[in-house]
Computed example of a mutant assay.
Amino acid sequence: MSQFTKPIRSFAAHLVAAAAISAFSLAAVAQGASAQTARLGGVYDVTVAGLKIARGSLSLVVQGNAYSAKAGMEPAGIGTIFSTGKGGAQASGWLGRDNVRPSRYTMASRAADRDFYVDIALGGGRVKSADVTPKLKKSPERIKVTPQHTRKVVDPLSAILMPVPANKGAKNEAVCDRTLPVYDGWTRFDIQLSYKEMREVSGRGYDGPVVVCEARWIPVAGHRPSRIKASGIENRYMEAWLAPLGKSRVFVPYRIQMATATGTLVVEANRIKVYGGKDTAAR
């Protein structure tokens, strides 16, 4: 995997998944759609140290509480110099009152002349099957993924959906009070969010307040501790800017950033367009 794809795949796996980084507004119309069908299309930019390296795309359909999304990523800007790799991901499932219940996740990408593939089926709050390529190399150091690790998890793409109960008096800051249990087919990890501050943003399809959460990546299983320590990934600063779109209590990342050895990695919407549905702020 090239130097271009390594930081993107690593960060995406922590919060938005490889080849799914473009799906920031996945739930923008989910609770405002009722039984109607709503569709969303978007284009997203990925930069490192201010230089554009990739472009993401998204198509989404939400009907009632069911969602289905397809996202893709390809090199752009200076990224075309260092990599010809590209990939895509799909996810589907249902939105609960305060959680997400995914049913299927697939991802396929090619980078540095290698193919990466994931097919995960979920149901009843657990992973029913998982097919991945390539397989993890055997190592006595690697922490084994057990059935317990694959219960009550979400796939990387569905992990960006953050419904919050409309409790009386609940503040928007409460969206940061959560831990996302993610399984990507190879590894199991948590993303722990905590409240930092409120900000105002404009443009890119959303104008208004965002909740800024600090994010911490916590390895659970499937990893090699020595590799994690050497990479320093646990100590890298990450944050997510979450926007309440429309009148719903669904929050989605407006911007995600992470410190890397080569500069700050930023994933941010370039333009978003919604078709159908109602009470949405993304236009």
Results as ranks from 00 to 15, higher is better:
residue 194 S to K: 05
residue 198 M to I: 04
residue 182 V to G: 01
residue 83 S to F: 08
residue 90 Q to M: 11
residue 45 D to L: 07
residue 36 Q to F: 07
residue 186 W to H: 07
residue 210 V to H: 10
residue 38 A to T: 06
residue 94 W to K: 13
residue 121 A to E: 07
residue 276 G to K: 06
residue 74 E to N: 11
residue 209 P to N: 11
residue 224 R to A: 10
residue 22 S to L: 06
residue 147 P to V: 00
residue 220 V to P: 03
residue 175 V to I: 02
residue 136 L to C: 01
residue 129 S to Y: 01
residue 186 W to R: 04
residue 257 Q to M: 14
residue 262 T to L: 14
residue 190 D to G: 02
residue 281 A to I: 02
residue 114 R to I: 00
residue 196 K to Q: 09
residue 109 S to R: 02
residue 106 T to H: 03
residue 128 K to L: 14
residue 201 V to M: 04
residue 33 A to D: 05
residue 232 G to F: 06
residue 36 Q to G: 09
residue 53 I to F: 05
residue 211 V to C: 08
residue 252 V to H: 09
residue 67 Y to K: 02
residue 183 Y to H: 06
residue 229 K to R: 12
residue 232 G to H: 08
residue 138 K to G: 08
residue 224 R to S: 09
residue 216 R to N: 13
residue 79 G to W: 12
residue 78 I to H: 09
residue 120 I to T: 01
residue 58 L to H: 05
residue 270 N to C: 08
residue 119 D to P: 00
residue 258 M to F: 12
residue 107 M to W: 03
residue 72 G to I: 05
residue 224 R to E: 14
residue 23 A to Y: 04
residue 83 S to V: 07
residue 227 R to D: 15
residue 177 D to W: 00
residue 268 E to F: 06
residue 236 R to M: 15
residue 229 K to I: 11
residue 132 V to Y: 04
residue 113 D to H: 08
residue 28 A to H: 01
residue 36 Q to T: 09
residue 98 D to R: 01
residue 260 T to C: 11
residue 230 A to F: 10
residue 101 R to G: 00
residue 278 K to Q: 15
residue 233 I to D: 14
residue 99 N to Q: 09
residue 202 S to Y: 07
